[in-house]
Simulated assay, not measured.
Amino acid sequence: MLSLGIVTVSDRAATGVYVDQSGPAIRDVFTRWLGEPFTEAYRLVPDEQPLIEAALRELADEVRCHIIVTTGGTGPAPRDVTPEATVAVCDRLLPGFGEQMRAESLKSVATAILSRQTAGTRGGALIINLPGKPAAIEECLRAVWGAMPYCVELIGGPRFTSSSAAPRPYRPA
Rank of each mutant, 00 (worst) to 15 (best):
P149F: 10
I113K: 01
R142G: 07
V152D: 08
K133V: 07
K133R: 05
T111E: 08
N129S: 04
L106P: 01
L114M: 12
W145C: 02
T118M: 15
A119N: 03
G123S: 08
L126W: 08
T111C: 11
A119K: 14
C151L: 10
G120S: 13
W145Y: 02
A110S: 13
R142Q: 03
A136S: 07
A143F: 01
K107D: 13
L141K: 01
A135W: 12
L130R: 13
S108N: 09
I137R: 05
C140T: 03
G123I: 11
L141S: 06
G120E: 09
L106D: 05
A125S: 10
A112P: 07
A112N: 11
R142K: 14
S108Y: 11
A135L: 13
T111P: 14
T121K: 00
G146W: 13
R122N: 03
A147S: 13
A135N: 05
T118G: 13
R116L: 01
V152L: 07
V109P: 02
T121A: 03
V144C: 00
A136R: 02
A135Q: 15
G124W: 03
T111G: 10
K107P: 11
S108P: 02
W145T: 05
V109A: 09
A135Y: 13
L114I: 11
G123P: 11
V109G: 02
S108W: 01
Y150C: 09
Y150V: 01
A136D: 00
A110F: 13
A136P: 01
L114F: 15
K107M: 10
E138Y: 00
A110L: 08
E139T: 11
L126M: 06
R142L: 04
N129Q: 05
P134E: 15
G120T: 12
L130C: 01
R122S: 04
R142S: 14
K107N: 15
R122Q: 07
T121S: 07
S108H: 04
Q117L: 11
A125D: 09
T111W: 14
